[in-house]
């Protein structure tokens, strides 16, 4: 059986209620930080959620995965509310899958993170002889569906309409495992922490060198640092002398934390330089911005001595692996 998947990165420019109402100020403020970066493409413990999803699909027997930037949600399809631009891209992707002879099509959105086993959903779909199976968590739809592509063959291009008509007849797959909706920055932080604590199946890309201390290839940590697990330090990242990294913090690849800085309960995005003798607490930091999770506010950092972008460090480009010498790491428990 040939299985294909269409993975949509973002919803079309309308909300789930199917109206053109703009986001209210609160929602806009919450999305301010992460709206500036394409979330699914961000590294999260060493690998983007997009790559993780694609890997999972591959492991479940999916031969081709088409990634599109924008497309309709299933709720929008059910209500026949899809903006023409988003719909056209999605239509093209479906048409291509059908043309290529895909028999079963997985439609999903890179929004929420789940530990969902696609093989299990596909098995359920087959057992029920369903035309459309939609995945639900206890708090609602996960925007993941499996469609019998044969039902779309005679759609003659009207895929949205055909699929919309199938939704009322759907089979429901109820999933009660780990779900993180990733709706606000706090959710991303919670996901990194949950993963480091083993509360979900997401695993850091690297090796566990101490109790809950994960290191990516070529990570360098000065012997004077205090590292208290659970902590993730990504590939090619360098932690300078006298730094303290604690509280379930995750520092992604190719970052540099300079002398004497403390990183606590924070997520530092890839290729970020954090200057010397600073305190980063309960925050998400990119190379230009910092979002404080308690204060729910974001600041732009204009001083490159404080925070800026790094470039990939030379030693990772040279392919050095697992750069830390064990006895150089001080792990406080």
């Amino acid at each position: 059986m040939q299985i294909g998947a269409i993975l949509t990165l973002a919803a079309s420019n309308s909300n789930e209620s199917g109206t053109h109402e703009s986001l209210n100020d609160g929602a806009r403020k919450r999305r301010q930080f992460l709206s500036n970066v394409p979330n699914p493409k961000l590294d999260l413990l060493g690998k983007s959620l997009l790559d993780r999803t694609a890997d999972k699909l591959r492991q479940s027997g999916v031969k081709t995965t088409t990634v599109i930037a924008e497309g309709p949600t299933l709720t929008q399809l059910a209500r026949s509310f899809v903006s023409s631009d988003a719909g056209a891209t999605w239509d093209r992707a479906v048409a291509e899958s059908v043309r290529e002879g895909v028999q079963t099509l997985i439609l999903l959105r890179a929004g929420a993170y789940t530990d969902l086993d696609f093989e299990e959903v596909l098995r359920f779909h087959g057992e029920q002889s369903a035309t459309l199976t939609q995945v639900y968590a206890p708090d609602g739809s996960l925007d993941i569906a499996v469609v019998d592509a044969r039902s779309l063959r005679n759609a003659d291009g009207a895929y949205r309409k055909t699929l919309g008509a199938l939704i009322p007849k759907q089979e429901r797959f109820l999933y009660d495992g780990y779900v993180n909706r990733l709706r606000k920055p706090q959710d991303f932080r919670r996901l990194t922490e949950d993963a480091l604590c083993g509360k979900c199946r997401l695993r850091p890309a690297g090796s566990e060198v101490g109790d809950g201390v994960w290191l990516g290839a070529g990570a360098q940590i000065d012997e004077s640092c205090v590292i208290e697990g659970p902590v993730y330090i990504g590939a090619g990242t360098r932690i300078g002398a006298g730094c303290t990294i604690i509280g379930g913090s995750a520092i992604e690849r190719d970052c540099e934390i300079d002398f004497g800085t403390t990183v606590e309960q924070s997520w530092i995005l890839q290729q970020t330089y954090i200057g010397l003798s600073l305190t980063v607490r309960h925050s998400i930091v990119s190379n230009q911005k910092m979002f404080h999770l308690d204060r729910k506010a974001e600041i732009a950092i204009t001083d490159s001595s404080l925070i800026r972008a790094t470039k990939s460090l030379a030693f990772t480009q040279q392919g050095h692996q697992g750069g830390i010498v064990k006895n150089k790491l001080q792990i406080a428990s």
Binding site: S277, L278, T279, R281, S283, M290, H292, R295, A297
Partner: peptide, 13 residues
Amino acid sequence: ISPEASIFLELTR
């Protein structure tokens, strides 16, 4: 103190 200023002051200690 605004939240933004407070973040900056904490960052720089």
